[in-house]
Nucleic acid binder design. Structure first.
Length: 871
DNA sequence: TCCTGGACTTGGTTCTAATGTT
DNA sequence: AACATTAGAACCAAGTCCAGGA
């Protein structure tokens, strides 16, 4: 509401950090703007089938998938089953066992990683022996991989030897890159300016390594202008390059610092750490030239925008601020939040016992929220209806004509709503555009914040509109009215010297204005459904603040790599501990490590009944002799986790024993909770918590899969490899999605097309035979005479058709393969982007192929990674 | 030590925009 | 140009984990 004219923004710009912002004018322009719209009404929610017990045998899956990881969750039809049953999964654990004996601390070897090359070689098996160790460093998937590619197993070991960081892979990347880049430059002239920018930036991107190196040595001077508070403008004015450089540097520095300060580490640990870091630096080679693997082409447009964006946000990367203890920012300026428009009564009357009813606007509003959900599954759920009725009834009043929900007919409202939707759809492109622009204009001022002098995007600056609560799974509160949030519900957090955002609703005011720089939120309000909880307004993922914590997250996960061996050894030892708590901690840690389970905090009764590791119930785990465990439970978001895994015997025995004398609904780990577990983990590695294992296993899996499986080929082939690796991770993390409604239809259409192609292929073959014998081709399906072609021409056609068929089959396979697997979640949250960026650089795959615009923005901090980076 | 408030990350679905197809 | 599909942004729910106080 309220005008966009508010001058405040401008003011701020001026006053605050002077300049940075500027330049932007154009930036905002496009697209970066959020798109606005609100959620409509209907929706079908998905639901996964709850219930733990019994339940379905879902597909294939399970069977033997002992091999956990690969196998994964049961569901995917994928490979899993077939594989050799049993086998190996084992590998893993056992490894630790044996290794256990070994010296507890690993030498400075740091990462013993299997060089890709070696792996490739893999053929012969080798002495497994010390393999154990190496296995420790590997992702579970590989450890367990019994099935599928077990091939590697034995092999891996030897290889590692060298590597370390040798970084490298002998790969003459640099040379390759060099060539490429040249090419690029030459072509430059022809390209449009925008393209140029693109190129440039790319180059910078990749080229940064060299820079890093230098900077490192050179020291710190640079860093982002802002920090020193000097708002020199330039900051963004200069382009990415500089800024990149500077930021990078900071990063490095910081990392180093950090490393230094872990006093709490044991010596050996420190050694390890040190060595690893040194490796790191070593690895920085000078491949300056490289790069540009990115193909320019059409991507240009996007990129350009991207670039603009990065202009300011480029800041991304580490803020010095972080180092200063708790402080998350020095200055913070923003315009508060925007509210949804007030309710506009439509006047359409619903029926009660067949007769139209008068409703006040408030009553009508809620009735409409309900009416609009007609097509969702929510309205089939008694809980939903019940909760809705309770809240609506309160609004109607005891004596209202409407006395029971069953006699209500919301159809008139539903229909009205459908019509409105239709109208909207029918609007011309221009009209739509106009609407969009109008909205954008109103929101523009709320979209940005200035943090430490740098303009950054705000994430969710729109206050959530009122509606009916849509909890997932069997949420006890589903259907309750989520009331409208008003300014007096909202607390604003802003810099001391910044102007206080004007309350957009006339006559009202904020609940409170704070100036707390130890937190990152810009505003919050209490969740109307659960007043004990809060809804926060944060900066967008592309912001430097978020980027930095993201980076820290991955650094912590990487650190786990140095500790994992010992941790595994330790918990393996404790499987048989006499102390029950210890035993439970050991087993729980094992599950978290091996299966990437979540920690599992306790939940209240007024939340959906889901579990994580620490809250597993007896009924969620079934022991299948001799040593398999079948998991079946509803996890976060009520997504079902179903998996049968082979485990080490001691684990199996321990679980069986935890189940003794308990009811199915009792806690499996009765002497454990997440705080105990995390407290224990923290003793093993500073900062270690349960979720770090998920990040670690996800990222290391991607890293290794990419190393092992990438082969020469074109971009499309590499893309497939990447997706396979990504999929593997998604399976480990149990990231599912519902099969799209049209999936089957799409598949059959594709099948049809495929058949058709095969048909023409056959025809070509006949024609070829005939042509070779000098006979004319047969008539085509319509009875028309085809052209006479030379055998060579026909052969060519056959080749193209074959290619088409192959391509199609591949895409069908992928489609089928990924129909229930969500790749996005792991990309956003679990996979260290540096792995991907480095891989793209090494294999000349344009990063845009893998990361979309928002991921690119989110991961700017990772773009200048060395191509040889290993997680 | 336990409990709870508080802050921030993770996650699947929904809806729109962009792109592909006919 | 109309329609189908896909990509991706937006949404907001649901986790994790920490810190501080009793």
């Amino acid at each position: 509401m309220h005008a966009s004219t508010d001058p405040s923004w401008t003011l701020m710009v001026v006053q605050a950090p002077p300049k940075p912002i500027l330049n932007n004018f154009n930036d905002d322009d496009d697209d970066d703007g959020p798109i606005v719209f609100k959620r409509g009404g209907n929706s079908t929610s998905k639901q996964n089938q709850p219930n733990l017990e019994a339940k379905k045998p879902s597909s294939s899956s399970q069977n033997s998938n002992g091999q956990s990881l690969n196998a994964h969750k049961g569901k995917s039809p994928i490979s899993s089953s077939n594989a050799s049953p049993v086998k190996s999964p084992i590998g893993s654990p056992k490894a630790s066992a044996s290794s256990a004996k070994a010296s507890p601390m690993k030498p400075p070897v740091t990462y013993s990683r299997v060089p890709s090359s070696s792996i490739a070689v893999k053929e012969e098996t080798k002495p497994i022996v010390d393999d154990d160790d190496s296995e420790d460093d590997k992702p579970l998937s590989s450890r367990f991989k019994g099935s599928t590619n077990n091939a590697n197993k034995g092999v891996t070991v030897p290889a590692r030897v060298k590597d370390e960081h040798s970084d490298d892979d002998e790969v003459p990347l640099s040379s390759r890159f060099a060539a490429k880049s040249n090419a690029g430059s030459s072509s430059c002239k022809t390209i449009s300016s925008s393209e140029k920018i693109l190129l440039v930036s790319k180059i910078q991107l990749n080229g940064s390594t060299a820079k890093d190196k230098q900077q490192k040595s050179s020291a710190v001077p640079t860093k982002r202008p802002m920090d020193n508070k000097v708002p020199s403008n330039q900051s963004f004015a200069k382009k990415p390059k500089l800024s990149d450089a500077s930021t990078t540097k900071q990063v490095t520095v910081k990392a180093e610092l950090k490393a230094d300060d872990d006093d709490h580490l044991t010596i050996s640990q420190r050694m390890k750490k040190a060595s690893s870091s040194s490796n790191k630096s070593l690895s920085v080679k000078q491949n300056v030239t490289k790069v540009v693997s990115f193909s320019s082409k059409k991507t240009t447009k996007n990129n350009k925008k991207q670039m603009q964006n990065s202009k300011y946000s480029k800041s991304t990367k580490v803020q010095p601020g972080s180092s200063d203890g708790q402080k998350k920012w020095k200055t913070l300026v923003h315009n508060g939040v925007i509210f949804p428009p007030p309710y506009k009564p439509h006047g359409v009357k619903m029926l009660y016992k067949g007769k139209p009813v008068d409703l006040t606007p408030e009553q009508e509003e809620v009735a409409t929220m309900f009416a609009v959900m007609k097509d969702t599954e929510y309205v089939q759920k008694p809980q939903f209806l019940q909760n809705f009725w309770n809240d609506w009834r309160t609004l109607l009043g005891k004596n209202h004509v409407i006395q029971k929900l069953e006699a209500c007919d919301f159809n008139p409202i539903y229909e009205w709503h459908q019509k409105e939707k239709e109208k909207k759809k029918q609007m011309s492109t221009e009209e739509k555009k106009a609407v969009r622009e109008e909205k954008l204009k109103q929101e523009e001022m709320y979209m940005w914040a200035i943090v430490n002098g740098v303009k950054e995007k705000v994430g969710n600056f729109r206050v959530e509109p009122p509606g009916l609560f849509r909890g997932r799974g069997e949420h006890p509160k589903m259907g309750k009215l989520k009331s409208r949030i008003r300014p007096s519900d909202i607390t604003i957090n802003i810099g001391k010297d910044a102007p206080i955002p004007k309350c957009p609703i006339p006559g009202e005011r904020w609940k409170e204005v704070k100036h707390d720089n130890t937190v990152t939120w810009l505003a919050f309000w209490n969740d109307p459904i659960n007043p004990k909880e809060f809804k926060y307004v944060f900066l967008a993922a592309s912001s430097s603040l978020k980027g930095q914590s993201d980076k820290e997250k991955y650094e912590k996960a990487r650190k786990l790599k140095d500790y994992i061996h010992n941790i595994r050894t330790a918990y393996t030892k404790d499987f048989a501990s006499k102390d029950i708590t210890k035993r439970q901690i050991a087993v729980a840690t094992y599950l978290i490590d091996k299966l990437a389970l979540r920690a599992g905090n306790e939940k209240d009764d007024d939340e959906a009944d889901t579990v994580g590791c620490c809250t597993l119930k007896v009924a969620n785990v079934e022991c299948i002799p001799p040593n398999k465990l079948k998991f079946d439970f509803l996890g976060k978001d009520s997504i079902r986790y179903e998996n049968t895994v082979e485990v080490e015997l001691p684990v199996y025995k321990a679980i069986r024993q935890f189940q003794v004398a308990k009811k199915p609904t009792d806690d499996l780990f009765d002497s454990l909770d997440t705080s105990k577990l995390n407290a224990h983990l923290k003793e093993l590695m500073p900062g270690l918590t349960a979720k770090v294992f998920r990040t670690y296993n996800a990222s290391i899996t991607l890293d290794e899969k990419l190393y092992e499986e990438t082969e020469d080929g074109d971009v499309a082939e590499k893309f497939v490899i990447y997706n396979q690796a990504n999929k593997q991770v998604a399976i480990i993390c149990n990231h599912q999605r519902t099969i799209s409604k049209s999936h089957d239809a799409q598949m059959s259409r594709l099948t049809e097309k495929l058949e058709e192609l095969k048909g023409t292929l056959k025809e070509f073959k006949t024609d070829l035979d005939r042509a070779k014998k000098g006979k004319p081709p047969l008539k085509d399906a319509d009875g028309k005479q085809k052209r006479n072609l030379t055998p060579e021409a026909i052969e060519k056609k056959i080749a193209t058709t074959n290619q088409k068929i192959e391509k199609m089959e591949l895409s069908m396979k992928t489609k089928e393969d990924l129909k229930t697997v969500a790749l996005g979640t792991s990309k956003i949250n679990y996979l260290d982007p540096r792995i991907t960026v480095a891989w793209c650089k090494r294999h000349e795959v344009p990063i845009e192929k893998i990361f979309n615009k928002s991921l690119l923005a989110k991961f700017t901090w990772a773009m200048d990674v060395d191509p040889q980076f290993r997680f």
